[in-house]
Design a protein around this nucleic acid. Structure first.
Lengths: 161, 161
DNA sequence: CACAATTAAGTTGTGCGCAATCTAGTGGCG
DNA sequence: CGCCACTAGATTGCGCACAACTTAATTGTG
């Protein structure tokens, strides 16, 4: 067993801190991956992965966006987006062209096929919502907490400490 | 802009469902990745990635475990664990040997170096906790909700539907 | 005991996430 | 104009997550 000998003094590091701290990030991770499995099934007949689906959501909403903007919305850099977009282009859902105004920028838009896929994607959210068995208020509340947590982590990262 | 023409009838799929549903899983994902960045920094001088750190936590707590048990605790299969453990073995923190009782099983244990690393790891939780700026109750509550969500997603997945 | 079904790890292949680096275009500013 | 800092994307390399498959050991059942 090797039961930790909880020192329990006023200062830091009581022995089982090494379990407590694991909790929140691990739970987060586990939930995220569990969602992944559910989305994987729901998105299978659309031929999309979850990150690809997120890109398509943005394009369905905004019509077209430069890679930079996609990255800002999704918190992803070009190292992740470039190959992902290349795959979406290869499957014919997306079109990429360099902006005329700024030759550095690449604008991503929908092909007809990509636009048409939206119809079939409308069934996805309901399937996901059913799988969570959370009501909308619960979801909203949880989301708010998570966003607050993310913001805290982001700003903590900036500090040199 | 292409503002969706919210149909708003009684049935499902009001148009912007395609944004709402993104929310919870995306927030989850974002929080998980934000944690990843913070852990990456905190674990850097230990020479561990976050998943490797989780394995070490289990070994520090339990002494040694078969790969199967590690996978159950972490929700990971051998496809992920085998190469990860091989890397930990290569850096000298971990020892792997086939069980004598069941030759199929591989038991993972700590080397002296791996055991010694625990001392330095004790500083990690505090750094992480500081970065979240959440108090313990908040953490506990959030964790409970996430675990409930994960359980719901897991059981939903089993249903053939 | 023999042999099929099950189980534990490992392997292979794909895609994501991210750091680090590279390329090329843009925008100052003297 | 010429040079330099900056910016947008792409590329490379590594590790994780997971599906699908392989190999080898074990268990159960006739």
């Amino acid at each position: 067993m090797t039961t930790p000998t909880s020192t329990q003094t006023e200062t830091q590091t009581p022995d089982d801190f090494l379990r407590l701290d694991q909790q929140i990030c691990f739970s987060l991770n586990a939930a995220s991956r569990a969602f992944g499995s559910v989305y994987r099934v729901a998105l299978k007949d659309l031929g999309l992965t979850y990150p690809q689906y997120l890109v398509m959501l943005l394009l369905w909403e905004h019509g077209e966006l430069p890679v930079k903007k996609l990255g800002e919305h999704l918190r992803l850099d070009s190292g992740t987006l470039s190959p992902l977009l290349k795959r979406l282009e290869a499957t014919g859902l997306v079109r990429r062209e360099r902006s005329a105004r700024d030759e550095r920028s690449v604008v991503v838009g929908l092909t007809d096929e990509g636009g048409a896929l939206r119809e079939r994607a409308l069934a996805v959210p309901r399937r996901i919502a059913a799988a969570t068995s959370f009501d909308l208020d619960e979801i909203r509340d949880l989301r708010a907490r998570l966003d607050k947590l993310t913001a805290a982590l982001d700003s903590a990262e900036l500090e040199t400490d």
